[in-house]
């Protein structure tokens, strides 16, 4: 019997979580028309989420591009001429590595920051205080963060694509002796603008997921310091997992349906 009780209670907890997510989602959608009243907050959050994440994204991308070049060269040796290395780096970065790794590192940084901030506000009754002065916390706290993250993630992904390709190019030159010219020719050879567009479109969704998960877990924080810790952890874990799941679904939609191979 204990076994069934356990299954039942975890199922209920799961459904409650899903319900909570949808309730917040509905409130966000309903608050959306009032978005222009909060321009100041949106700009502030864009600065924090977007500009604040640039150093992290740049360093991550540089090394991701570099390692892609190294691994590609390792696979190539003896089979494929090194002049194709630019093509491989370019393809893998614009399609997957740039957008997804940006979303994962920024997701960790941003969803944790949002969940910790809103969670602390929740447990110190600041959210209640906001409700009491008749300000909707969804309007004032959630929407600006979601809008800012959704708009800024693609921007960060552009930086990431650029830096990763640069990293790959530099490493190809230094370690493999592939000149920049040859690398760039390889890059052009297989480059398709739909790869770049498809990769960047995905990041809008990733940005939304990251901020939304941070806000949701922040708002459902219970207890004190421990509760804030748990909420932060849940925010990071769920945003990273959802980014990966969404990435698969979006890639299927974009590259199997919209830009379907002819």
């Amino acid at each position: 019997m204990k076994f069934f009780a356990l299954i039942g209670s975890s199922f209920l907890a799961f459904m409650e979580e899903i319900g909570g997510v949808f309730i917040l989602l509905c409130r966000v959608v309903r608050a959306f028309p009032g978005i222009f009243r909060n321009m100041k907050n949106i700009v502030l959050q864009m600065e924090r989420i977007g500009i604040g994440s640039i150093p992290l994204v740049l360093v991550t991308s540089l090394f991701v591009g570099a390692v892609t070049a190294i691994q590609a060269a390792y696979q190539f040796q003896g089979f494929v001429p090194m002049r194709y290395i630019g093509a491989v780096v370019g393809k893998s970065v614009t399609l997957e590595l740039g957008p997804v790794l940006t979303a994962l590192v920024v997701g960790g940084r941003v969803s944790a920051a949002i969940a910790a901030e809103l969670g602390t506000m929740k447990v110190t009754e600041q959210i209640d205080a906001m409700e009491m002065i008749a300000i909707d916390p969804v309007d004032y706290l959630v929407l600006p963060r979601i809008v800012a993250a959704t708009l800024m993630l693609p921007v960060l992904a552009v930086f990431s694509d650029l830096l990763a390709i640069l990293g790959g190019m530099v490493v190809s030159k230094i370690s493999m002796g592939v000149s920049m010219n040859v690398f760039q020719n390889g890059l052009r050879l297989l480059f398709e603008s739909q790869d770049l567009i498809g990769g960047l479109v995905k990041t809008f969704f990733f940005g939304f997921i990251i901020a939304f998960m941070g806000c949701y877990h922040g708002f459902s924080t219970k207890g004190g310091a421990e509760g804030v810790g748990i909420a932060t952890m849940k925010a990071v874990v769920s945003s990273c997992l959802l980014v990966l799941v969404a990435n698969y679904l979006l890639a299927s939609l974009i590259f199997r349906v919209i830009f379907a191979p002819k």
Partner: peptide
């Protein structure tokens, strides 16, 4: 509020 709940 008990702990004042000022927006910090």
């Amino acid at each position: 509020f008990q702990a004042s709940a000022l927006f910090d």
